[in-house]
Each structure stands twice: as structure tokens, then as C-alpha cells.
Design a binder for these strands. Sequence first.
RNA 1: GGGCGAAUAGCUCAGCUGGUUCAGAGCGCCUGCCUUACACGCAGGAUGUCGGGGGUUCGAAUCCCUCUUCGCCCACCA
Length: 894
Amino acid sequence: MTEPLAPQYNPSAIESALYAWWEERGLFSPDASAPSAEARRPYVIMMPPPNVTAALHMGHGLNNTVQDVLIRFERMRGRQALWLPGTDHAGIATQNVVERLLATEGQTRFDLGREAFVARVWAHVRETGTAILSQLRALGCSADWSRAYFTLDEGLSHAVREAFVQLHDQGLVYRGHYIINWCPRCLTALSNEEAEKEEVDGHLWHLRYPLARGGGHVVVATTRPETMLGDTAVAVHPEDERYRSMVGTELRLPVVDRLIPVVADDAVDPAFGSGAVKVTPAHDPADFEIGRRHNLASIDIMTPDARISLAAPERFQGLDRYEARRAVVAEFEAAGLLEKVEPHQHAVGHCYRCHTVVEPRLSDQWFVRMAPLARPALDAYRNGTLQFIPERRGDDYAAWLEGIRDWCISRQLWWGHRIPVWYCQVKECSLTTVSRDDLAVCPACGGEVHQDEDVLDTWFSSWLVPFSSLSWPDHTEDLTRFYPGHTIVSAPEIIFFWVSRMIMAGFHFMNEAPFTSIYLHGTVRDTQHRKMSKSLGNGIDPLEVVDRYGADALRYSLVAGMAVGTDVILDPGDLEASFAPGRNFANKLWNAGRFILSNLDGPVRPLAGKHRNVVRRDELSLADRWIIARCDATVREATEAYERFRLNEAAAAVYRFVWSDLADWYIEQIKPRLYGDQPGGDVARAVAIQTFDVGLRLLHPVMPFVTEALWRRVPGRPEDASISVAPWPTADERAADPDALRDFGLVQELIGAIRGIRAEYAIQPGNSVRAVVGAGANTAIRDEQPTVLRLAKVSTLTFGEPAERVGGHAVLSDGTPVFVPLGDTIDLGRECARLGAEVDRLDRLVDSQERKLGNQQFVSRAPAEVVERERDKLMSWRDQRGVLARKREMLGCH
RNA sequence: GGGCGAAUAGCUCAGCUGGUUCAGAGCGCCUGCCUUACACGCAGGAUGUCGGGGGUUCGAAUCCCUCUUCGCCCACCA
């Protein structure tokens, strides 16, 4: 730790070593049995488990950065902090990945058979399974890898079975014959949430169905003409006069030549189309209900891969659904039964994994009855137990719960948790057994049993994670200590898949919500506001960014570019533009630290506490007091911002403090003291290192690596101390120092005024000027002369009336005149114009201010405090204007 | 069809409870500087009808209405 620090911060040289050191020390693995002194419960975040085949993308980067900032913040605040990571077996997604791999070998999963295929998937995920967790380490994520789980682990499988059996015993899991969303490519059922509705431009075909007794027809409209092959009725509204006489009669279904009844049903909207609806119970959920009410037959005209089945006329059999659509329409047209075709926009479900258009399909599936589970989850929201950030997301949550439908949990896949249900193969017995343990024989008759072929929806294991990852149903110390957690960090599109369901499972199985704060961040998009995605090729690889700019730069850029609930826009074509600010800031910290550390000599005097060598208040210069006050204000601002999940504001507050205040002003101003030109070097060192230390700690949640690297080098630190468990800075009433803020502000103004004049008249940087300020100048300016001399490149600063008149003039906000003599070199016209513009600006301010204060309404209605402030402003502007106007007269400007 | 959000500098965005950051930050741009922490830097500078229109108010980027344009979520009118 004593090697000299390079002038340029090189993240890749230190990040991985620091991370390894953190992990070795177990800093992120809280001990469930350790006595916890603090009254508050531990702070727990469940990491959204990435898919086992996933590679880190920017969405993970954002999601996990937010979580890491929060967990590091709370850890430093002294709470036991557990961030529990895991990976998800991701049923469909993973099965698809491996199927694609097989396809490159010219094979399908059916060639391998179930057992060999599952073995193949296991082999694959054993390779890819923890890759993403290592990638998260590169981001600096302080998760507890020792507790990492996989949703197909033995423990979690145990929990899944327990949950299934309990729900079944409570009558909340049932098997039923219903219309579900079916993906004809993945060959499985999907839940409603997994069928993504998308607006598509389609058509509305108006078809004529002739009356069976002859003499006319009924027109029905459909967006899927091919389904007419399975029609078993036409429905009309019972009150619809147009069709009243027809109800109970029969129509001759064209193409298939079948007689179907006209039925009356309330579900029909008489105002839409012709007011008559074709009814296909096997292929439409609404039609299915109508069919049930009227005892209609269901004719399944499609195979699992969405081809026309044997139930349809032979000439259609085997046709793809879209080919069949064309063929059906063609026959209607040929028969003169196609009334018209209209363009029609409607929402069509797409498989969320392969984007194939889903087909409503009638089949036997397992469902969870959701209404009873939703009730406590909804109550918790209404009574304020759950806090959504941003708040409006709570409305989405509540609306979804209010309209909740039963959850189809069976999937016709091979990769996942097999449904724990066994069917007795003995005809006379045929017992169905739901069991926690594998069944060898029928418990009733001892006959052969066969396990349900299907697996469970991936999300059925995910929704248990807040307690299954802590060994539930076993009552371990982990479960007792770390359930419930506090915050979940997710993307809005995951609310229904995961967040709401975890809350429901939490209430149902644990009697308590698994977390109370729900932080929903935005989406990472490119500059055209398109979601970053592999298919669009507009993604940014977070690891490449880490490689080039460091994890801290990546994290800072993500955090700084994101207000609560807004998207993060990054430019894939210009990484520099997106990540340079973070890189630059890391480098700034590095160099500020380098400077401060290299100037320390000997022990640092403490700023507070009962020490013999404590820095006394009367030893502090104005600048010392000022930076201490700014530091204190920053502690308040940043802490509050973190608490309110306003991470961008926390980052901005520390950025301002470190860069603008500490580096640009304080460090520059104490240089003479450090170099021995001025007394008080020991105080300056003490103030610099201790305020810098506070800055490092405030920033550590966002930029863990560079802050750790610097913090560890502060002399007197124990070898094994880590900033990640250093105490969070506390604000101190006594440090708030409004006088220092005001007075040093004037010094800054003075320096700015002189610099402005120097720049205006192109004074060579090497040349010093003289400066004269009004005799009545704030005493702070006298006291801080060395600062002014140095930072404004002034050789002498005098007080009183200047002997000369020609030069640059300015005025401070308290009315103090400033004069920089520039001799004959100055262009008088230029100075007159410069001052004139300034006087004009003040004129306008004074004018509007006078109008405001002349307004009786304002004076009487606005709070006295506000009026007082406005009066002060007016006086100050008048003073400034007066001073400058006199200068103009003196110079003979017109 | 219902609900929600956004529009502020060339770009990406802050601006919370109307008046103490009130018109801001970073990037980019212009000028001058390799000043012994940092050129990934320092100093100075330019750039805005706060999307349009109405309203409430003593006072509006901020609250209300409306229009326009984008975006998101939900939805069994076939």
C-alpha cells in the first residue's frame, strides 16, 4: 500500500484484487447466528435471479447497480445486510437455448428423448450457470455468493413441492379443461402474462352463413377465418330484434357443411359488426364460455403446432393455420359467401420467449386459484404497508390484482420442476395422488403409477424465492433472521410475473409480505429510445465498459443518468459520451486523494472528540470552516437522497462537494499552507483528509472500488479495515456554519470577478495583476488574502479608493467595488460596454423587483419572509448597479 | 377502447411542497492555459419563447384545463 500512486487512475489494475479481498474477508456474508446489537432488523434484498443461460447485459447492470448502492448504503449504516443472489432455471428460455444448440447438430429434443435431453440441459447450465454471477462481481456487486441458490436446487425443489401440495390441499390448485394461451413453436401452455399482447394490423372478414331452411344468411365477422372449421354455433344478443326469430333455428356452416344452431347469449355485443358471432368453443376463450352455457360441442381443429387437425375436412388437414386461413377465405369467396374484408387493428398475443403468435387452445392444465391469494396482497397496498417507488406503479399493481385471473402453471416442457402428481394406472383405481415425495406405487391399490408429464411454470419457483432461498419450509436461523426483507429492485415489466406473486406467496406461506419497498427502475434504451436488445444489435456490453472505463465509471453513469422511474438513455455508438463523466470523476477522486495523501506528514489531528491534539475551533480559517460546513451539508443531502431512493441526487451532491468544493476551491486554497508558505498546515491537512474521507464514504455505495482503494491508504487505518463496513458519516449541527458559507462565498465572488476581468482583457496567465477592493469589504476578504492572491493571480490586494481609474471594474453581491488597474493597455470602449451591459442587466432586475415590491397584493399576501428576502435582493442589486454606474461616469463612458 | 407517463441548451437529463440555486448539470462547442494532484485537467465564455394555447395566483418551468407529439401498461367487441 505504499507504492506511489499513478497520476492516472487505472481501474483494471485494482478492481478485481479489491473484490477478491472483500469476498475473502466475507464482508458480504452476514452471520445469521451472530448477536445483532442493533435494534433494527437486518436489511435484505433478494436479487432478481438472472436466467441461468444469461450473459450480463446493461439491464442487469442497471438493476444490480441500484441494488448494490442500496445494500452498501445500509451496510455502512451499521445494519446487517444480506443481498441474496441466485440463478433461475428459466424453463422455456433455457429449453429453447438448448434446443437451438441441438438444431445446429441436426437434432431435436424428441430425437434424444426426455431423459437424455434434460441431462443435456443440465450439462449446459453447469457450464453457463454461474458465469453471470462472476460477471456481477466485476460490477462490484456485494452480494452474498455463499448463499447463492439455483431454482432447481434440491432445497428449492423441496420448497416448490411443499407449496404445490399445500395449495392443493387448500383447494387452491386444481386441474381443469380450459382455453389457455398456447405457443405452437414452444409447444406449451403459457400464462396470461406470458402472452404479450401487441397491436397488429389485421383484417376483419365478414362471412355469410346460410340459413339451413334456405332463403337468406347471417353475416358473422372474424379475424381468424380458419377457426370457422370448428364452429358449432352462431350467437346473437337475446334482445336483438334482427335475430330474435332466428334463435333456435339452424345455419348451414359453409366449407364443412355442418348444421349449427343460432343461440342467444348476453356476451354478444349487438353493436359490433353484424351483431352475430361465430362460436368456436375450442379456439376462443369467450366462445368457450358461450359453448359451456349452451352445451355446444368443442371441435379442436388444430394440432399442437397450429396445423389443421383431422377434425377438419380432409383438404385442410395438415395446413398451417395461415395457409388454412387463405384456403378458407378462398372457398368463401368462390361460393359468393364472402361479404367483405375490412382492415382491422387488434391485439394479438405473442409468446414472450419466441414471439410466435399464440393460439388459444383447449386443454387440460393445472391452475392456481388466485383471488384468495390476491386479497391480502391488495389489502397491504391499500393500507400503506407497501411502498412503490415511483408511487404510480402501485396503481398498476392494484389494478392487476383487482382483475386477477387464475394462473395456468403447467407447462408442456421437459426442463423444470416436474408436477408432483401421480396417476394410478390401474383402471379400477385411477387414483390421482399429489405428494411431497416421489411415488413408486399407488398408495391405494399398490398398482403402477405414472407421474404427470408436465413441469411447472418457472415463476412458480421464483415466487417462493424470498423464503425458499432461506431454506423454507425448514425453520432455520437464516429464515428467522432474514425474512422478511425490505426492498425489491426490479423492472416494471416484472411486476406481474414476479413482484406481485412474491407478495402473494409471502402472505400465504409466511403471513407477511417479503418486502415493503418496491423500487422499479426504468429501461436502458439507445438514443432513439429503443430498448437495448440483442436482436436490434443496439446493446452495450457492460463488461466492455468495465474493461475500458472501470466498474465505478459504469455505475456512476447509470446512477447519475437516472431520476426515479425514468429510463436510462445510453449511446451504443459513443461509449465515451456515456461513460467518460464517470471515468473522469473516478480519476478526479484518485488525484485529489493522491494529492491529499502525499501531503500528509505525521499523525493527523482529529477534528472532533476528546483528544489532546484535537483541532480547536479558533485554529480554523474561514476556508476550513467553509469546507467543513459544505461537507456537513453534503452528508445531509446525500443521506436523505439515498434514503429516498434518489440515487442520482446523492451522486450529484457528492460530485459537487468533491469536485467543485474540495478540489477546485479548498485544495487550491490550502496549498500555501501545505507548502509551508503559510501557517496552519497541520490544520489544513487534518481538514482536507477528514472531509475527503467523508466524501469517500458518501460515495462508496456508487463507486465502491476507487473509494476503497483510496480509503485504505489513509494512514492509521488497520490493515484489514474496509470502507464497505466503515461507519456512515453523520451530520453535525455544530458544523453547519452559515457565516462561513456566506463569507467564503464573497471570497469566491471576488476571485471570480478578478478572473473574469483577466479573461476579458486577455491577461497572460503568467502575469500578476493588482487589485483594489472597497475599504468596507467584508473582513473575510482581508483574512483570506493569501487565497485571493493565489487563486486570482493577484500580486497585491489593497483596500480603499484606487489611485487610478483605468482598468477593469466589478462589484460583489454585497456592493463591494472591485478594481483591477490595467494601465494604458485597456480598451476604454470595451470596458464601458462591459460595464454597460452589466448595468443594463441589473437595471432590468431592479425594475422588475421594484414592480414586484410595489405591488400591494404581493406585499400583503406573500409570506413576510419572502417579502423580506425580495427586499434584500432589491437593495443588493441597487447597490451593485450604483457602484457600476459611478464607475462608468468616472471612466467617462456614455 | 381504458389508464399512466414524458416534452426544459446542439445531445442526455436535473429542477421535489409555486417565491433561495430559477432558468441549472454533464457532454459537446468557442477562447486562453502542459499553473509542481489530475489535459480523464484548470480558468473564462456562448447557447433556452421551459412543446402550443388558455386558466388559477400577488407570483407558474412548477398547479388546473386543452391541443400537439412521443412512450409505456392494461383490454375476450368477434
